[in-house]
Lab assay of single mutants.
Amino acid sequence: MTYKAILNGKTLKGETTTEAVDAATAEKVFKQYANDNGVDGEWTYDDATKTFTVTE
Rank of each mutant, 00 (worst) to 15 (best):
K10G: 07
T55Q: 07
L12E: 05
A48T: 12
T17W: 14
Q32Y: 05
E15N: 06
T53H: 08
N8S: 07
A5G: 05
T49A: 06
K4D: 03
D22W: 02
A34W: 06
T18K: 04
K4R: 13
Y3V: 03
D22V: 01
E42D: 11
E27S: 07
T53S: 06
T44Y: 11
K10T: 11
A23V: 11
L7A: 02
Y33F: 11
A24N: 07
T16G: 04
G14M: 15
T11I: 11
Y45P: 00
L7F: 15
T2P: 06
T51R: 03
G41N: 03
Q32I: 10
A34R: 02
N8K: 11
T53N: 05
T16Y: 15
A23L: 09
T16W: 15
F30R: 00
V21T: 11
K4Q: 05
E15A: 09
A48G: 08
K50W: 06
A34K: 01
K28Q: 11
T49I: 06
L7K: 00
E27Q: 12
Q32S: 09
V29I: 15
V39K: 02
T18S: 05
M1T: 14
D40G: 09
V21L: 12
A23I: 09
T11V: 11
Y33W: 15
A26K: 01
Y3L: 03
I6F: 07
K10M: 11
F52K: 00
T11M: 11
T53I: 09
N8A: 07
D36S: 10
I6M: 06
T17D: 05
N35D: 10
T16C: 15
L12K: 10
Q32K: 14
N35L: 15
T17N: 06
T44P: 01
Y33E: 02
D40M: 13
K28A: 13
D22M: 03
A23G: 04
T44S: 12
V39W: 15
G14V: 14
L7T: 02
T49V: 05
G14T: 14
G38C: 08
T53P: 00
A23M: 12
T25V: 08
T53D: 01
G41C: 04
T11R: 11
D36P: 01
K4Y: 13
V54F: 15
Y3F: 13
K4L: 07
N8H: 09
A5Y: 10
E42Y: 13
T16E: 05
K31W: 07
L12A: 07
E15R: 07
K28Y: 09
V39L: 13
Y33C: 10
D36H: 07
D46S: 05
T16V: 15
G9K: 04
T53R: 06
V54D: 00
L7C: 07
T25Y: 07
N35R: 15
T17E: 09
N35E: 14
D46Q: 04
N35A: 15
D46Y: 05
T25H: 12
D40W: 14
T11E: 09
T17F: 14
E27M: 15
D22F: 04
G41I: 03
L12Q: 07
V21A: 13
A34S: 04
V39Y: 09
Y45I: 01
K50M: 10
N37I: 14
K10L: 14
T2V: 14
T2Y: 10
E15W: 14
A48N: 10
K10V: 13
V39E: 02
V54R: 02
T44L: 08
A24L: 11
